[in-house]
Each structure stands twice: as structure tokens, then as C-alpha cells.
Simulated assay, not measured.
Amino acid sequence: MSVLIAIPARYASTRYPGKPLVTLNGPDGAKTLIQRSWEAARAVKGVDRVVVATDDDRIKTHAEGFGAEVVMTSPSCQNGTERCAEVAGKLPGFEMVVNLQGDAPLTPAWFVEDLIAGLRADSQADIATPVLRCDGRAVSGFLADRRAGRVGGTTAVFGAGGRALYFSKEVIPYTGKTYADDDPTPVFHHVGVYAYRPRALRAYPSWPIGPLEVLEGLEQLRFLEQGRNVLCVEVDAKGRQFWELNNPEDVPRIEAMMAEMGAR
């Protein structure tokens, strides 16, 4: 099964303009967010092609400068999934399209490899996405963000067979408990990566934006509001920390994680 990874990168982010070009300092020096995300994508085994998808010439010039292939997409794309759908239309023939969002440089290669395997094994799923069981430290970070009025990570709840029930920027399910840093919890962090079957991806831009997608600002809810099967694939962090860059305040947090892990 041929696999394409597209990395959506938008300069005009409402919450964090210019985010793809922000510099992250790690053990390997200073690199931009988009370069680190591209390197994370290139580390995934079994992928046939990796492209950066953007509508901004600044990102295009920078990405080509470090060796990335760039596909220019329309500025009218509402989110990364719509941008990936446009890429899939320009680069047809792949049996699976993976959206590795450009704000997740800490994504381990095995998260994506497990995701691809999960979608391959479930013929009824239209889309698959990874979830990571939170420890107490991660849940505390989510709750601290919410108390500070920041949009932090997204959580997921799912039922039998890993079928997604809901995704939220709130911490769900509610537990009412306090956990030690290393305690496992029943809260799952949604990892911002998606693997789509082309038929579902092609249909996505034509579907109306539903009320839940509007309220939460989460693109994957459009699939659920259309009654599509979304598979949650539980992945194992294997001792590594994971966090997306959602706000300027996340930069030192991610840099600290990179320093602790000695990872890019």
C-alpha cells in the first residue's frame, strides 16, 4: 500500500502567526518547527513520499532550502485536512494519505507506523488517528492550560474496537481525581496525526462544517458529524514525552522535552 505524508503548514495562524517558522533549540542546534516536523516525517518507515503543503511563499522558500518537496495549496483551505485533500488531488495514486501536522515535532516515527498499520487492518475505518494514554503529569499540564485560558492538547474518548466517540479541547472524561506524575490515567491525549482513505479524504471538503467542529475548532469532528468511522489507535510513548506546539508558551516546554530526551 503506497503512502503519502503531507505536512500542512499555514503562516496565518490565528493563535500563533508564523508558527511554522518559529525556531526550536535542541541538542542538534536551532531548527524551525516545520523543519523538525519534516524530519519527523522522514523518519517514518514504509512511506513513499513526504511533502510540505502550504499557501505561503515564505514557508515554501524556507522548506525548499532544507530539502523538502513543497506542494502549494489554496489559501481558502479551512484546515489541514482540506489542505491534504487538495494535495491528494494533485498527487493521485496513493492508497493512503497521512496528515502529520506541522506543529508536532516530537511525534515518534512508531506513532505513525502504528497508525498506518491500524488503518490497514481495519477495512471499515475511513480515518485513523493515534491516542496516547496520559500520565498524571500530562493531565496536570492540560488542566493548567485550561485554568490559564490557553488551548492546550486535545483529548479523545472511544468505545469498542477503538471507534472514536468524541474529541475535545477540554479534559475528558472527567475523573475528579488527582494523579501523581507517573500514574496512568483514563485520559487519552489525541496525537495530531491522521491517516485517511482517499475516498473519505476526497469527500471531506464537500461536507458542511457542523456545530461541534465550530465549537471545538477540531477538524476531525467533521468525520464524526457525518457518521464516518474514525479509528483511534493507541500508541506507546516508550518513555518519551509528547506535546504539540499550540501557543508561544509551548516553545520552552518542547525545548525542555527535547533536551531531556536528547531527541530532535
Rank of each mutant, 00 (worst) to 15 (best):
V44Y: 06
A43C: 05
D48N: 14
I34S: 03
Q35G: 01
A53F: 06
D56R: 11
E64S: 05
K60G: 00
F66I: 13
K60Y: 00
G67W: 03
A43D: 10
A63L: 07
T32W: 11
V50K: 06
D56N: 15
T61Q: 14
E69F: 01
V47M: 06
D57E: 14
I59L: 09
H62L: 04
H62I: 00
E69Y: 01
E64Y: 07
H62A: 10
R58S: 13
D56L: 03
A53D: 05
T61H: 07
K60T: 15
D56M: 08
T32I: 03
Q35H: 14
L33V: 15
A63K: 08
R58N: 13
E64W: 04
A53L: 05
A41M: 10
A40M: 13
A43H: 01
I59C: 09
V50P: 01
V44N: 03
D55G: 14
R58Y: 08
G67P: 13
T61R: 15
T54Q: 09
D55R: 04
R36A: 03
S37K: 06
E39N: 09
A43T: 02
V52A: 00
K45R: 15
D56I: 07
A41P: 12
E64C: 04
E39Y: 03
G65C: 08
T54E: 06
R42A: 14
V44C: 05
